[in-house]
Design a protein around this nucleic acid. Structure first.
Lengths: 348, 348
DNA sequence: TTGTAGGCGTTATCAA
DNA sequence: TTGATAACGCCTACAA
């Protein structure tokens, strides 16, 4: 159980450079005040010895770790893959690193969050799954800020950054209605998830205000995935007895893609001539030539920016005075309507 | 600059539980020998105080961090997104965390690797970009193992895990040849990358052994991306003067998808009737109804498993005796031929 | 600008 | 099994 032989620490470098250990530390701190020649001497010694400052030790003495945890759910949904990449790039650009965690589906999010907290990360971004309120209060006790991304909690216990699902869905409902849709099918995602619920609600409410009768609106579960939606459509359209919808709203693009493929390949239906289709998210593959979905694009870049901003604010705030806490709330950003080719355009 | 007020450490818990500080540590170590009643008392106190063991401090005392760094290149290529997810799941399952880094295109990989090394990670997985030999030797000096994933180095300075590109490409060449292809177009990826080079080589060599003449084989750059390949095909096929190929081999699926869309949507060509097409990787979107690519599926799960195995072996090995070092080499795993529908089948 | 001394929160060592 | 004590490698005082 011997220690590694070549553990080269700042002390070793200091000795070689003929300076004190803190001077080595200063040489690696851009803002520190140190004589140029000493810094050069230290850096030379460091290079010679293959010395790298130990960020772990640094994190221990400083209060923060320069690490942000990101908890992702379904990486098969390009929306989350794209988001993750942007988080990584933004954080890297500001000298921070990303500790990623993946949560299968439902419950083990708590476990994963606990791990993140143990690393004393500077903040946690949750893009998926539900947190138990125990864990939320724990994180607040420990003083690590959490921000939800693309979802929110009923009680607004946490900051959340989202694209405005309601207004987005309303636009899609209006567009389909204008294009002459009469019978609607909504393919929802996780019924527990706030995002799917809001999108469904926005869509339904808008249709209602357009005097579409409730029994002209059908709703099915698409499991939030390509294959789930594919199967749902396959099953629904297989039954020729029931009247088919002429407009389908999938609450996210990945499901819309599943719908599109089922409609075209299994039932030889044309989109939008036979059935019109809309999605939500604006993911890249949904805009490929094979799909060109009519959808709402989430402003991912801005959402990421906002999320990080909130984390920083929250961690800045001194938790001495409880009353001074930043109010936890939802932050809604507007999405962009993408016309696409899966709903006929009417204004030309 | 006051410290956080509620810093609850093992000392605090120890005091409340009426034990010594190391006993608290033991209570959180499954394998430690500690009386059951004491452990219970400690855990109760910990819960009451919202105490979580500080993994950063733990990493400092122990020699390792339980963190593995994964450097990803192009997250828009689902192959890497899928791989990353599997790495995360595997590592999480074994009690380790993943620090992800993203490398834009070429050069800044060194910077990112340096950061990883500073965190004294247990290992580094590189799925993209080129490492300077300086950095490689630095990492070896520091004693942190690096394994390449889906790429290799010319000098075998590092362990690498790859799918056998040569044999895979040979199968594709044979299949297309059997299907009656006469004029071939290879769409390559990064010409610097070992993976693209090997796939091109395997394909060409096989064609040569089938007595296809070199001037019946064309090669173009597809930039390793959907849009790059889309553009390349668009440009090439726009020129009707030059004879068109009747078979296209894109060295990865994401480019094959770009080729497919360009062929179908821009030039109204049918696949495989007018042009046959093959990819490589076996990514999920490439098997969607809209594409159903003929391709080679990389055994990602096994590749990940092997990669982690190599990291563990290397970090186990005592670096006292230089001679005992595990030999760095390429580890080739076999891919699976996926028939798909973009090359006509001939055996039925 | 530089060096000395102490602390960050944990695990390892060694007696008891 | 338990507790005292010493690392782990850095940063932040503070004094020179």
């Amino acid at each position: 159980m011997k220690r590694k032989p070549n553990r080269v620490t700042s002390h070793v470098v200091a000795k070689l450079a003929g300076v004190s250990q803190p001077t080595v530390s200063r040489a690696f701190t851009p803002s520190a005040s140190i004589a140029k020649d000493k810094r050069d001497r230290v850096l030379a010694a460091a290079k010679q010895l293959n010395y790298l400052p130990n960020s772990i030790a640094s994190s221990l003495s400083k209060a923060h770790s320069n690490i942000v945890a990101v908890i992702v759910g379904d990486m098969n949904n390009p929306f989350y893959a794209e988001s993750l990449e942007i988080f990584i790039n933004r954080l890297q650009a500001t000298g921070r690193q990303v500790l990623v965690f993946s949560v299968a589906d439902g419950r083990d999010c708590d476990d994963v969050l606990m791990r993140a907290l143990r690393y004393h990360v500077d903040g946690v971004v949750v893009t998926s799954a539900h947190l138990s309120s125990d864990l939320v209060s724990l994180s607040q006790g420990v003083g690590i800020p959490i921000t939800l991304f693309n979802r929110s909690t009923a009680d607004h216990a946490l900051n959340a950054v989202l694209c405005n699902s309601i207004t987005g869905s309303e636009i899609l409902a209006q567009t389909m209605h204008d294009a002459g849709a009469r019978r609607y099918l909504i393919v929802r995602g996780d019924p527990q998830g706030s995002t799917s619920r809001n999108r469904v609600k926005g869509f339904r409410d808008k249709l209602e205000s357009l005097t579409v009768l409730p029994d002209a609106i059908e709703e099915l579960d698409g499991g939030s995935s390509y294959s789930g939606a594919f199967d749902t459509i396959s099953e629904r359209f297989a039954d020729k007895g029931i009247q088919r919808p002429d407009a389908i709203f999938a609450v996210n693009d990945i499901m819309a893609m599943g719908c599109a493929d089922a409609l075209r390949d299994v039932f030889k239906l044309r989109i939008p001539e036979d059935v019109m289709l809309a999605g939500f998210d604006g993911i890249r593959p949904g805009q490929l030539a094979a799909y060109q979905l009519t959808t709402i694009r989430q402003p991912i870049e801005e959402m990421v920016e906002k999320t990080l901003e909130l984390l920083d604010q929250t961690s800045m705030s001194d938790e001495d005075d409880e009353k001074d806490l930043i109010t936890q709330t939802d932050h809604l950003l507007a999405g962009t309507f993408v016309p696409g080719k899966t709903v006929p355009s009417t204004n030309t």
